[in-house]
Amino acid sequence: MSETSDIIVIGGGIAGIGAGARMAADASVTVLETEEAIGYHATGRSAAIYIRNYGNDTLRALNAAAEPVFKEPEGISDESLLTPRGLLYVATEEHTGALDKILEGATGMERLDADAAVARVPILRRENIVAAAIEEGAQDIDVDRLLQGFAKMLRHQDGRIVNKAPVTAISRANGVWTLETPQGSFSAPIIVNAAGAWADEVAKLAGVQPLGLTPMRRSAVILPAPEGHDVTRWPLFACAGEGWYAKPDAGKLMVSPADEDPSEPFDAWPDDMVLAEGLHRFEQAVTVPVTRIERSWAGLRSFFPDRTPAVGFAPDAEGFFWLAGQGGYGVQTSPALSALAADLCAGRKSGLAETVVQALAPHRLIKT
């Protein structure tokens, strides 16, 4: 006998838990998560920063829609989920075009000269900087408080989260989907595919056409703070050409080679060569050597070919809802995308512009 709900969400990352929390106001919701805890994969390995000017025009619209929720997260937290940080881009001669592209259409970004950039991050190698820009409004996101706040909201509305429940089979009969897991069978007329890097695999299980998702590995390390420097108030600082970025983290520096290596969906780990090459690029941009790595890890950021998420009902399967392909924008767009998913599943008009809703529609990715 299957447990029944109005909606089953596959995936307990920030996308699935956020959507489930918003949907539970209108429907009975069950979230199925493969791991022992929610947020284990991409959500728990995020750089955790809100950047208004990150991504294409559709993503920037989602970022803007999410900001008020981060600042006043009613029902999620009693106080803002944001802490001031700032984001500094630096460009060598090779990367000035990339910086110009970042600044194109940007809101709240200011160009800086090399001296001003070094004043913000004293370890930057001044002679390499041809141009720079800062987004003062970039802020750290308290990801755990966001995720747990959504989970609390979901449970408060009688929603359920089932851990250690990988979906092994999906079938549909008489307008109802049935999902098999080690924790039993679960049935609902609507299933939400929020399975992150595994979203296309879930679609295949359901007999739904995959949309061309590519998981890409992103690695990071924790380095000791440079000797003689208090990094606490430094902004996140990054190569405009996406060769590396660094962010203060609990008095240390998190550094990433900004890698995007296509991968099969799996529990990702870093590649030593990729880390070495990325840390070399970082060392060329700063005046201090990398002497010790305290910790390293990797996660998967999953993209569709146009680097825009897919949010909406599949055109080829009734009751199959896509919520996937958030790439590196999943945490910061989650307030907007969870609200959109809830609106679409409930048949309501979204508060987002229709052009944004259509840009996210899965049918754009269906191959004919």
Rank of each mutant, 00 (worst) to 15 (best):
D230N: 15
I191G: 01
G149R: 01
K152A: 15
K247A: 09
I38P: 00
D261L: 13
Q326T: 08
N163R: 09
V9D: 01
A133T: 07
L352F: 06
R60W: 03
G347D: 07
V143Q: 01
A27T: 09
P305W: 05
D142F: 00
Q183S: 14
P224R: 02
E67D: 10
E180Y: 04
I10M: 02
I170Y: 03
D271T: 12
D113H: 02
L154G: 07
T96V: 15
A336F: 02
A197M: 08
T4I: 07
A24R: 02
A298H: 02
G243T: 07
R281Q: 13
P305N: 12
V288C: 11
T308I: 11
Q284K: 13
W322L: 11
D267I: 12
L300H: 01
A206I: 00
P270C: 13
F303K: 02
R52A: 14
A21D: 04
R145M: 05
A98R: 10
V31S: 00
I51N: 08
V69S: 05
R85S: 06
E33T: 02
A203H: 07
G196I: 10
D343M: 06
V288W: 04
E264F: 10
G327A: 02
A21E: 04
I293D: 06
T178P: 08
I293T: 13
G351Q: 10
S263V: 05
T92M: 09
S46W: 04
I10T: 00
H229M: 11
A197C: 11
G149S: 08
A188L: 09
G137W: 02
A91F: 05
L112E: 04
E127S: 15
A27C: 11
G13R: 00
I17H: 00
P210V: 09
R45A: 15
A114Y: 04
K247T: 13
E79S: 15
N53L: 11
G251T: 06
R155N: 07
S77P: 03
L179G: 12
